[in-house]
C-alpha cells in the first residue's frame, strides 16, 4: 500500500493533537510514515505508533532550533526521497504551511493549504476547504506531482489504530539556504492551563464590549466553568486587553469547536471568517442589531456583565 508522509508537530516529543488527526486522515489514503524532527522521538514514537504510524523517520540536529523553517524543509525532502510517498500531510500552522510550500516547490508538486477534510479519490486525495470567510466549501485536488496538503486542526476526531511505528534514523544534509535565517532568541509561550484555542471543544471569546483588560476575568471565569479556551476579537487584542495568540478571525486563529460563545463581539466578516464553522454558536451582545445575531443558534440581547456572570454561576451549579 502507498505510504503517506506525516509531518509531526510536537514540543520536545509531546505530540500535539493535530498530528494525531493527520495520522487518522492519512490512513484513509495509505500507510502513515511519521517524520519527527528534533528531540524527544523516544516519547513521541509510541504515540505515533498507537495512531497508526507504520514507521517513524527521525532526525535531530541543532539546525532545527537555531534556524528558521529551511532545515526542516531539507529534512522533509530527505524523508520524501527515502520513502517516495503518495502524499505528504502537514498541520496548517504558520510553520507547517511554509515547510509544505517550500517542499512542494522542490518536488514540483501542487499544494493545498487549510484542508478541513480529506478523502481518497480516483485521482488522488480530495481535499475539502472552506473559503471566502467560510461562505463556500470547495473540493480540490492536486493535479501535478505528489500532493502536499496542510490540514487545519479539529478536522477529524483522532482514532487510535495500532501499528509498528518502528523508529529509523533519517540522514539529512543541510543545504546552503538552511542557515540563512538565524533564530537569535526564543521565548516559549507560557501555558495558560486552558485548552489550546484551535483544539478546544468549547471556545469563549470576548470583544470590545469587554471594555478593558481588567474585565477579561468575566470571560475567563465562564471559559473555566465550561473547560473552554479563551478567544478574543481583534478589537480586544489591538486594545491590548488580551494576547494576539488568542485572536480569532482572518488574521488570527480559525476555530471550529462544538460550541462558540461570543460576548461583546459585533461579528465583523473578518471575525466570522475564523469561527463561522463552529457547530453551535451563541452570543451575548447589548445591540440587537449586531451582525453576530445572524449566525447564532441562541442569542441573548443584554449586558454581558449581567448575563455572563449569571451564566457562569448557573453552569457551575448544574455541573455540581
Amino acid at each position: 500500500m502507498a505510504e503517506v508522509l506525516v509531518y509531526v508537530d510536537h514540543v520536545d516529543g509531546s505530540v500535539r493533537k493535530p498530528t494525531l488527526e493527520l495520522l487518522t486522515l492519512a490512513r484513509r489514503l495509505g500507510e502513515p510514515v511519521a517524520v519527527h524532527l528534533g528531540a524527544g522521538v523516544e516519547t513521541a514514537a509510541p504515540v505515533l505508533a498507537e495512531y497508526g504510524a507504520v514507521k517513524v523517520l527521525a532526525a535531530d540536529a541543532p539546525e532545527f532550533n537555531d534556524y528558521l523553517v529551511v532545515p526542516k524543509v531539507d529534512a522533509l525532502k530527505a524523508a520524501f526521497d527515502a520513502v517516495s510517498p503518495s502524499a505528504v500531510l502537514l498541520p496548517s500552522s504558520a510553520e507547517g504551511k511554509e515547510i509544505g510550500a517550500r517542499l512542494a516547490v522542490r518536488i514540483d508538486s501542487g499544494l493545498i493549504t487549510d484542508a478541513i477534510d480529506l478523502e481518497a479519490g480516483d485521482e488522488g486525495p480530495v481535499a475539502t476547504q472552506s473559503v471566502f470567510a467560510a461562505a463556500f466549501t470547495t473540493k480540490s485536488r492536486v493535479t501535478n506531482g505528489t500532493p502536499v496538503i496542510t490540514v487545519k486542526p479539529n478536522s477529524t476526531a483522532p482514532e487510535a489504530a495500532s501499528a509498528a511505528g518502528s523508529v529509523e534514523q533519517l540522514s539529512v544534509s543541510f543545504g546552503e539556504l538552511a542557515t540563512g535565517t538565524r533564530v537569535t532568541s526564543r521565548t516559549p509561550r507560557e501555558s495558560t492551563g486552558r485548552p489550546e484555542l484551535t483544539e478546544a471543544a468549547i471556545v469563549v471569546s470576548g470583544g470590545r464590549g469587554v471594555n478593558g483588560a481588567e474585565n477579561f476575568h468575566v470571560i475567563e471565569s465562564l471559559a473555566d466553568s465550561l473547560g473552554a479556551a479563551v478567544g478574543a476579537s481583534r478589537a480586544a487584542v489591538d486594545a491590548g486587553w488580551y494576547p494576539h495568540t488568542s485572536q480569532v478571525g482572518q488574521t488570527g486563529k480559525t476555530v471550529s469547536p462544538q460550541l462558540y460563545v461570543a460576548a461583546g463581539i459585533s461579528g465583523a466578516i473578518q471575525h466570522r471568517a475564523g469561527m463561522q464553522t463552529s457547530k453551535t454558536i451563541v452570543a451575548i451582545n447589548k445591540d440587537s442589531e449586531a451582525p453576530i445575531f445572524d449566525l447564532v443558534d441562541y442569542g441573548v440581547v443584554g449586558d454581558l456583565f449581567e448575563v455572563v456572570p449569571q451564566l457562569t454561576e448557573e453552569v457551575k451549579t448544574r455541573k455540581g
Binding site: 451575548i284 443558534d297 441562541y298 441573548v300 440581547v301 449581567e306 449569571q310
Partner: peptide, 12 residues
C-alpha cells in the same frame, strides 16, 4: 436561531 432579550434571567 432563537434570540431573547435579557429581562434579568438571560444567563439562566
Amino acid at each position: 436561531g432563537t434570540v431573547v432579550k435579557d429581562e434579568g434571567e438571560g444567563g439562566k
